[in-house]
Design a protein around this nucleic acid. Structure first.
Lengths: 190, 190
DNA sequence: CCATCTACCTAATGCTTTTAGGTATGTCGC
DNA sequence: GCGACATACCTAAAAGCATTAGGTAGATGG
């Protein structure tokens, strides 16, 4: 029997695929082993148990999202940047629902997780450079952006918006436009 | 041995308590049985397996949240209503983190779940009566409200906002004020 | 007080997680 | 090529959770 040649990274990727297929909360070491063509116990050389596997899937997702976000933000600012990053998150959640859930999973205390999270808040802050916000309003703005992005995507995915008019897409567009207007006129609402 | 006198409702409440103690994703039929002082198999007379238990916990949370929301909205309108309902959600998430997660759990296809969800979107729509929004903007507004409420609470609870200035509370206040302003000036954004 | 209902039980099966310790495969220095 | 090492993978076993089948006993109502 030829060996599978697994690494920690490959195990995490198989887990990410599994999350997209079955849902993040249905990810199991056993199923990863099955898909890798390997005995269950063998995975414990690569991953430190079930929680560690989930944390590594989260990291995969955060990194992929970070890469897409960075590319989307390059050369854009203001409203364009806002729409571009929002769509990156939303499209990623559609394409990779399991990975998106993983990314929203609290990665408590992990250094790599903190760094990945930092990267995302840095991107949000970069968007705000196109608006005229000084601290502490800039931080409030980062939190507002994060709340709307993740809140909308979460509600949309829980099918709360389904089967009703206007379409979810219309609301998304309208909300981001309103958010843009809000950020532009922020100082006046002090 | 005196019998425990369980009902489906009591099992769901024990599950809800368990969710708050250990986390919603750590809720297990075995642990509920342990806390109820009953054999595991006995729970299957009250609950239709693990997924059904989780769905019933979600329903407990949605109902409790609905009751608190209805009370908070009584006699308030506009900005007051907005702040009151927002604080209901946020405080509930702080007091009952496991139940809050349960409430955000998609309850697919259940009639009671749909009804409970409807109640919450009705409350959001009631808030918007204090602002001057005609359809389809009213629906957009409901979705914006839901996104910000749940998005902020979710991010705040994943500790993304910890250990930094300004405080999470300041951002919450500021964001709700901004939201109020967004809704008041909505028509002008055509 | 007898019949009925049902809350609760024991027993058994199968799945997942995790640890302990052994085997064999790939690689590197000589 | 050939020992020697690292480690990817294995078997085995123990423990926990989910679920089903079928039986027992405590409450309820006529």
């Amino acid at each position: 029997m030829p060996r599978a040649g697994l690494t920690t990274e490959k195990v995490a990727l198989i887990g990410a695929q599994l999350a997209d297929d079955l849902g993040f909360d249905r990810v199991t070491i056993s199923e990863v082993a099955r898909r890798a063509g390997v005995q269950v116990a063998s995975l414990y050389s690569h991953v430190n148990g079930s929680d560690d596997l989930r944390a590594r899937i989260a990291l995969v997702a955060l990194d992929e999202l970070g890469d897409r976000g960075a590319e989307a933000l390059a050369g854009r600012s203001g409203r364009d940047a806002l729409l571009a990053l929002g769509n990156v998150y939303r499209d990623y959640a559609t394409e990779h629902p399991g990975r998106y859930d993983a990314a929203r999973h609290p990665v408590t205390g992990d250094a790599a997780g903190l760094r990945a999270g930092q990267r995302h808040s840095d991107m949000l802050r970069a968007i705000l450079r196109g608006y005229d916000l000084a601290e502490p309003d800039q931080t409030h703005g980062v939190r507002l952006l994060g709340s709307i992005f993740h809140g909308f995507i979460s509600l949309e995915r829980s099918t709360s918006f389904d089967h009703s008019s206007p379409s979810s897409q219309e609301s998304w567009t309208k909300i981001l436009s309103t958010l843009d207007a809000m950020l532009r006129s922020w100082p006046r609402h002090g």
